[in-house]
Nucleic acid binder design. Sequence first.
DNA 1: CTCACGAGGTACATCGATTAACCAATCGTT
DNA 2: AACGATTGGTTAATCGATGTACCTCGTGAG
Lengths: 347, 347
Amino acid sequence: MNVTSERPGRRPTIKEVAAAAGVSTAAVSQAFNNKGRLSEATRRRILDAALELGWSPSAPAAALRNARTRSLALVVRRPTDVLGSDPHFSELITGIEGELAPRGYGLLLHLVSGDREENGLYERLAAEGRVDGAVLTDARDDDGRPALLARLGLPAVLLGSPDDTAVVPRVGLREQGAGISEAVAHLLALGHRRVAYVSGPPELQHTRVRRAAFEDALREAGLRPFAVLPTDFSERRAVGATEALLDAAERPTAIVYANDSMAVCGIGTAQRAGLAVARDVSVVGYDNLPLGSWLHPRLTTVDQQVQRVGAAAARMLLSLCGEPVEESAPTGRPRLVVRESTGPAPG
Amino acid sequence: MNVTSERPGRRPTIKEVAAAAGVSTAAVSQAFNNKGRLSEATRRRILDAALELGWSPSAPAAALRNARTRSLALVVRRPTDVLGSDPHFSELITGIEGELAPRGYGLLLHLVSGDREENGLYERLAAEGRVDGAVLTDARDDDGRPALLARLGLPAVLLGSPDDTAVVPRVGLREQGAGISEAVAHLLALGHRRVAYVSGPPELQHTRVRRAAFEDALREAGLRPFAVLPTDFSERRAVGATEALLDAAERPTAIVYANDSMAVCGIGTAQRAGLAVARDVSVVGYDNLPLGSWLHPRLTTVDQQVQRVGAAAARMLLSLCGEPVEESAPTGRPRLVVRESTGPAPG
DNA sequence: CTCACGAGGTACATCGATTAACCAATCGTT
DNA sequence: AACGATTGGTTAATCGATGTACCTCGTGAG
């Protein structure tokens, strides 16, 4: 461990490694990148010397030379209120990082509050050459980001219904509506007839998909939604929507929420109103956050495997960046997880 | 907008800007860094040309030249089970990013599962010169990271009880135990005498601090803890500890948890056991996650302002990296937030 | 008139790694 | 023995921005 004796902060350079191994810097580079032609003996000697000195190629130098930084951007849009986004993004990041880490890639995380800020950030990241690509979340209708990123020449993937014909490939589970359909079927089988939906922000694409699935599933059973209330995913709106529903003359016997966080708010609101969840009113969430199973009653929800989708998105993006990765689309579809927050329709 | 006509992906370089402005590349650099001596006229001409071409200095090139990347690392250790860490880190990241973004810094986020992996990662980040510094979370007893980072010459701050004499400065609220003391006082005032504590992993430093505060506060009232049960912050252990406590012959009338996530699990467990939280058993959490106020009953908890601490840590670290930032220590101390999960001791 | 000086810029080396082009042995072949 | 091919490397240019040392004017003083 003579490493310890080195003056801290002084990083060794390729030159020193080359000197230590008695070769040229080119040889060192070749040894590390498995290019060129080196005898197994010298290759080993070089790697040993590098290990001894604790050397790794300087990322900025390599990035400058190769025009590739080996890091990807994830920009998280965090509107006014936090609700719902957090655990979702944690899962997503877990999935992404799982693919990046073993390949030596880094994830550059940014939080923004709005449209202009997000776009400006992409411009800057591209102009500065800070990242090789970006993961776009929360596909919106009339989403300007794909075009922007295309113009910037920055590889990207968008999370949403699969569609590889688009400017920017989309990664996600197929049959996005399936989970909601299953949820409605589950409720209908329990005898529910007055079913309401508390949706997310209208501009998000998945809001439309889920809402349509909800309405279609009811229509096929010859029913109409009790109500469909849009929210901005904030606690205030989630609580407000729930209160409005529960205050109705003939209140719904079941409420489906566009995400788990709102469902939790809904459960709290119902309980505060003196109702027993599952017995008086059934609640269904969406996302299958761990949180859902801590509660009493445990939340019936739709699992959409955010983590696996994130991993698939990362692989797709890496592949777009020229990395040798097989880009396996995420298999399966959103699935209902029946727990305790749903029960037979009252009365 | 002749920018649109450019071939995508072809980033302009400083040379082109220099040519466009009719000056040397050195002048362009000086204009952007406010160094050297340039007339106001040429400076403006250069900035205009850069804007026109959409140029920003290449981050890798600048990093190579200056030995500073303008990005910081946050390594999140994510053990077996996720519980508790997620929302906490979301808050932390929010606080950090709020300071980094306006200064053009980036946050490189990594997830690791263990000790060796975390240390190896720091070695690599330092060796590759990928970051200028790192934020260390979850101070542990016998924590090897400060020494490691010092050896690597990588500036760092550690979240925990303030202590700027240490190898690596620590940033956090003062009087870390105050929140727990307040919680115990609150419970005692409500008439509770059998109070239990469900703690976090023993190796974490805050576990010891909070536990000591808990025991001290009870001792001052001439009482002893009903029990102190350690956990690993997992749902399983949180539920298990709660069940053990509630199964006891003379069960505790109040339980204090080392974080909100476990408290939520505890509430669920108590309810499942047929108990009414606040009436039959009081519950106190720690962290003041948004989640706590969605529940019914709303969670009484300790606010430790993770976001503000994160911001302070970021400022401290930026300052260590040579950035002109005033490093204001986070003011205040952990405070009890009384909501609905605590009530008078039963009968 | 000449020289020193400052204002305003420029030329060039440099950061560390990569790679195309090149070169010196060695080997097998006829 | 002579020659092409192969092996195992090396040399030098390059990526884009930055900073030091230097150069060139115009001006004011002596």
